[in-house]
Design a protein around this nucleic acid. Structure first.
Lengths: 113, 113
DNA sequence: TGAATATATACCCATATGGGAAATTATTGC
DNA sequence: GCAATAATTTCCCATATGGGTATATATTCA
């Protein structure tokens, strides 16, 4: 099975660093595919494949402009990711737990030697 | 190459739904591995493998307690994810862009028929 | 020491992945 | 229609993945 289809899962779509780069780039405004590939140093087919994945999960929309295909960010799909991670906020802020885990880690490692 | 190693990338680690489930479960408190597997209906080796990935990216810590290995959440690694997604917040709130994209999509589809 | 419990690893498998190269499909403008 | 441009799709490949099953490695307790 390998992994949930990239196509249907935003978490999977953003697991690939170059796709995250594309999204960041598109915050500056819409861009034709070639421009994206050039800016990020991707091969043209490579960029096209990543764009397809992003399109299929709805993170970008495309529009034809003459011979070019212009991609535009649609960040709405990232809101669930933000919310999901935000659900852990109080945990990464709990300095007690942090210290606790750290100390336990030390003990663990010391006793393992 | 397939994809950046799950081991080194939090985004990749949380791309797998069952690993996200494990993290959610651990918000309620630390738990031994078997308990995690049972609660989520995972096979024992399956849970163990997912826990290993989470451990390697630092999202969980483990501690031995007798024969059991107790896992505890360390959510600090999720903060960058939250921040990254949060960087798109103003985009998913821009209703103008949203409508614009939607209209362009409609036009696109109509002219394609 | 030896049986039982709790986990982690190793191994094998089917499949999804990303990358490169080549072929294919629009679309424009002559 | 035809050449040129822009992009997608198709193949092929090496590899990473998740899932089982079997095995190995602690650790406790009798």
């Amino acid at each position: 099975m390998a992994r949930a289809a990239t196509t249907s899962d935003v978490f999977n779509a953003i697991a690939e660093p170059q796709r995250r780069d594309i999204l960041l780039l598109l915050r500056a405004g819409e861009r034709p595919a070639t421009s994206i590939a050039e800016e990020l140093g991707l091969s043209q087919p490579g960029a096209s494949k990543h764009l397809r994945v992003l399109r299929e999960v709805g993170l970008v929309h495309d529009r034809r402009d003459g011979r070019q295909r212009v991609y535009r960010l649609d960040a709405r799909g990232l809101e669930p990711v933000h919310e999901w991670a935000g659900g852990f906020e109080r945990f990464w802020n709990e300095s007690f737990d942090r210290l606790d885990a750290y100390v336990q880690d030390l003990e663990q490692k010391r006793s393992a030697e």
